[in-house]
Amino acid sequence: MSRALGLILGFAADRVLGDPRRYHPVAGFGRTAARLEDHWYADSRSAGTAYTSVLVGTASAAGVIVERLTRDRPFVHTLVTAAATWTVLGARSLDREAEHMAGLLEEKDIPAARDRLSHLCARDAADLAADDLARATVESLAENTSDACVAPLLWGGALGVPGLLGYRAANTLDAMVGYKSAKYLNFGWAAARLDDVLNLLPARACAVLTGLAAGRPREAIAVWCRDAAKHPSPNAGPVEAAFAGALDLRLGGRNSYGDYQEDRGTLGAGPTPTVADVRRTAALARRVGVAAAGVAAILALSGRRKGRR
């Protein structure tokens, strides 16, 4: 019960407060990982695997210690779970970025929108027009709704604080070193593969919740089943395809990430996104987040019943 309540309180805190402005624990983890990379980096999978194992293992172990220290103190356990949930979620910050991008695009401030896109993804925005920026924003909102909201909530519901901290550590490392660049192709391999595994089920749960939250489950699932495999990511594909079906849009295409190009196929059969679709996508992402918080609480209560049996 304390886990379920902590997850709901932490989700509410994220919706109201967003990320801490200063001394964010995830940012601190990222700085630690960057310093460790300076000493540990080698162009090999074994070095990257060791690097990922130490950092993710340490975060998960810290969560296990916290769970054991508070498991007989329900009030404290609720507060600790709420704090961990608030720390690892990024739904409100994602929502703010969507609002900011929507405002810039509506004001036709394309240079500022190009600069701001880097807050959502690593896509090269130098030559993107307004509708291209809208597509990039919609796709990033879809993918990050799974990564920054649905997945951590579901891992928290299943495993508690260790699930929350371990997932966020793995996802952060993937964002730092999981790129298919010359530098990280080998060193970041373990972080990228671990993130793929940890998101395998949550991404598909997010796809289902997206269709339900939009009131178009058949359309979302149909596009997911038909088009997701065209996407190079095994987890972003189902989520972006589900958003395309839920919003009746056509996503995907060729994207530039500086030193490499990526073809994401064609997801959906509707029109390509326009500026107005950014706010529609953000509204849908908020509803998906609420649904995921409910599912996470149910997972936590289910685990409690199994423990009692």
Rank of each mutant, 00 (worst) to 15 (best):
M1W: 08
M1Q: 12
L5C: 10
F11A: 15
A13C: 13
D14N: 07
R15N: 05
A34Y: 13
W40S: 15
A42L: 11
S44R: 14
V54Q: 09
A62P: 05
L69Y: 04
L69H: 05
R71L: 07
P74L: 06
H77T: 06
A82M: 06
A84K: 04
T87N: 00
V88Q: 00
D95S: 13
R96Y: 04
M101E: 03
G103S: 12
K108L: 11
D109G: 09
I110D: 08
R116W: 08
H119E: 13
H119V: 06
L120H: 01
L120D: 00
R123A: 08
R123V: 08
D124A: 13
L128I: 10
A129E: 15
A130G: 03
A130L: 05
R135D: 11
A136M: 08
A136I: 07
A142G: 14
D147R: 01
L153H: 00
L154T: 04
G157V: 10
A158F: 10
Y167W: 12
A175S: 15
M176S: 01
K180M: 05
S181R: 13
S181I: 06
S181Q: 08
K183H: 11
K183V: 11
L185Q: 12
L185K: 08
G188T: 03
A192R: 00
R193A: 09
D195I: 09
L201C: 11
R204P: 10
A205P: 02
L209G: 03
L212F: 06
P217V: 02
E219P: 00
A220Y: 01
A220K: 01
A220Q: 04
A222V: 06
W224R: 12
C225Q: 14
D227C: 08
H231F: 10
P232Y: 07
S233F: 07
P238F: 04
P238D: 05
V239T: 13
A241R: 08
L247Q: 07
L247C: 11
L247M: 14
L249Q: 09
L249V: 12
L251M: 08
G252F: 03
N255P: 01
S256Y: 09
Q261V: 14
R264P: 08
G268V: 00
A269E: 13
R279Y: 01
T281W: 03
A283M: 04
A285G: 03
A291G: 05
A293T: 06
G303L: 13
K306F: 14
R309A: 15
